[in-house]
Amino acid sequence: MSAPPLVVQYLYLHAPGDTYTYPSARAGGGSDARRLAARYLECAAVQAASLRFAGVACEPVLVTNLADPAAALDDHGRRVLDAIDRLGVRRLTAPYDHAPGPEVEMFYSSRYVFDAIGAVTSADDPQRAVWLVDVDCVWRDPARAFAATPEDDAIACVTIGYPPDWDVSGHTRASIGALANSAEPPPWIGGELLAGRAGALRELVATCEALDAAAPSGARLPTEEALLTYAGALGQIRFTDRSDLAGRIWTGPRHGAANPPDPKALALWHLPSEKGLSFRRAARALTRDRTTRLRADLADAGRAAHRFNLDNSTATRVRNDTWLAAQKLRSAIIERR
């Protein structure tokens, strides 16, 4: 009997004093590494719950760069980590060997996915199904997703429909196409999902390492998305777009993004603008072990869409704005004590 799929979340935990920028983190500024860590761990806990409550056979894993992550957390972060442990998530440690240069601040930790792949895959089991996902994701139908794991050397991913000249951390589809001498701007490979067989993912890391080492001077690719897009443009990694299964969904009234046409039909929701909002509220239910309502919401597409703000109604916006204002006031009171 084959082993169940590995579902891998990965989180690089910054040290106090690190300089970094994560625009959607809602962590109250770039100087509080503990608050940033707690924000991302809240997402990881909620994603783990969405898997566990679905009752689908899989092995959830969280990879971090610290053997004792609790030491880098505040009390709230430790409570969230305890909730993750109660959900049966296996924790692994991997150093950040694929970090970009120290001059990179925007999405500094994005390349940590390559280290996570090394931590969870083994040359002894090249056919193991592995799904690597950003922490700010919610599983709606994991069984449908796992059934679509490529059987060969292909890597399932989500492509993002950026205009050719849309700047993403210093690169565009057009600039990467020019670097690869491709006739057309290549598809932009999103970093929120990489899925395939363990052997294929290990080959992906080796390919990206070689391309990064050989990148022309002045054309470094600091994020995993840029490097993966370049590898795809060269034809050195065979990506298969599974935007029918997973999608990057921006919520709220001001994002201006082109969302998937029918988000509720997807098996996996990536919700980058819900850090510090719906993920935070759901994580609170998990830390308090009050999960009855959360379980019911995750089991129903309509209720899940409402909980995670996919239904951008006026009532939802008012509720969210009121809740955020209350949280800011609460934080201000605590800081004055």
Score class of each variant (00 low, 15 high):
residue 182 S to V: 13
residue 331 S to F: 09
residue 306 H to L: 08
residue 56 V to I: 11
residue 194 L to E: 00
residue 43 C to E: 02
residue 302 G to I: 10
residue 40 Y to F: 09
residue 158 V to Q: 06
residue 220 R to S: 15
residue 329 L to N: 09
residue 23 P to H: 11
residue 41 L to I: 06
residue 288 R to Y: 08
residue 163 P to T: 14
residue 180 A to V: 08
residue 1 M to A: 15
residue 131 W to L: 15
residue 41 L to G: 03
residue 168 V to Q: 06
residue 304 A to S: 14
residue 322 T to P: 07
residue 201 L to V: 06
residue 55 G to A: 12
residue 193 L to D: 01
residue 225 E to S: 15
residue 38 A to R: 01
residue 275 K to A: 07
residue 279 F to P: 06
residue 127 Q to T: 15
residue 190 G to D: 13
residue 325 A to F: 11
residue 182 S to L: 04
residue 41 L to P: 01
residue 314 T to E: 13
residue 155 I to N: 00
residue 273 S to V: 12
residue 11 L to I: 10
residue 276 G to Q: 03
residue 31 S to R: 13
residue 162 Y to H: 12
residue 110 S to L: 01
residue 155 I to R: 01
residue 218 G to P: 01
residue 184 E to N: 13
residue 23 P to N: 12
residue 114 F to D: 00
residue 279 F to Y: 09
residue 241 D to L: 09
residue 2 S to W: 13
residue 305 A to S: 14
residue 92 L to I: 01
residue 206 A to V: 03
residue 245 L to D: 08
residue 31 S to L: 14
residue 182 S to H: 05
residue 76 H to V: 11
residue 244 D to E: 07
residue 271 L to I: 02
residue 239 F to K: 01
residue 290 R to T: 11
residue 99 A to P: 00
residue 336 R to K: 06
residue 226 A to S: 14
residue 306 H to N: 12
residue 8 V to G: 00
residue 312 N to H: 05
residue 146 F to L: 02
residue 156 A to M: 08
residue 23 P to T: 12
residue 23 P to C: 15
residue 149 T to W: 03
residue 79 R to E: 15
residue 17 G to D: 11
residue 170 G to C: 13
residue 46 V to Q: 02
residue 198 A to W: 05
residue 57 A to Y: 04
residue 152 D to I: 09
residue 58 C to L: 04
residue 67 A to M: 09
residue 317 R to E: 10
residue 35 R to Y: 08
residue 96 Y to K: 04
residue 65 N to C: 09
residue 271 L to R: 01
residue 128 R to A: 02
residue 257 A to E: 15
residue 221 L to D: 03
residue 236 Q to E: 13
residue 86 R to S: 00
residue 279 F to G: 03
residue 207 T to F: 00
residue 293 R to H: 10
residue 316 T to E: 14
residue 210 A to C: 02
